[in-house]
Simulated assay, not measured.
Amino acid sequence: MNKKLKILLSGGGTGGHIFPAIAIADEIKKRFPDAEFLFIGANGKMEMEKVPQAGYKIEGIDIAGINRGNILSNLGLPFKILKSLSKSKRIIKNFAPDFAVGTGGFASGPALYEASKMGIPIFIQEQNAHAGVTNKILSKKAKAVFTAYPKVEGFPIEKIKFLGNPIRENIISGMQETSQAKEKMGLDQNKLTILSVGGSLGSRTLNNGWKDNLDQIKEKGYQL
Results as ranks from 00 to 15, higher is better:
G174S: 11
E49L: 14
T178R: 13
R68G: 08
E49K: 14
T134G: 02
E183V: 09
I63F: 01
Y222I: 14
D26M: 05
T103S: 00
F123W: 07
F79P: 05
G198H: 06
V51E: 01
R90C: 06
S10R: 04
E49Y: 07
H130G: 07
Q216E: 13
N165M: 05
K89S: 14
K184H: 09
F79V: 14
V152T: 10
R68D: 04
N135Y: 01
G11H: 00
F39C: 07
N2A: 13
A96M: 11
G65N: 03
K57N: 15
D26Y: 01
G174F: 04
F37Y: 12
G186Q: 05
M46P: 02
I92R: 04
S73K: 13
A142E: 05
P121R: 02
V51M: 03
K159P: 07
G65C: 06
M118H: 05
A100L: 04
F146K: 10
L138H: 02
S179C: 07
S179I: 14
G164S: 06
N190A: 13
S86T: 14
Y56W: 04
L82W: 10
N207A: 12
G13A: 09
I160N: 03
K191F: 07
P33N: 09
A144D: 06
P97C: 02
I172E: 05
G76T: 10
I124V: 13
F99C: 12
L5K: 11
K80L: 13
K93D: 09
K218C: 04
L8M: 08
I92A: 03
E219K: 13
R31S: 11
V101R: 00
E27W: 07
G76L: 10
K50H: 07
A64H: 08
A54S: 11
T193F: 01
A23Y: 01
K141G: 03
I171S: 02
M185V: 12
F155K: 09
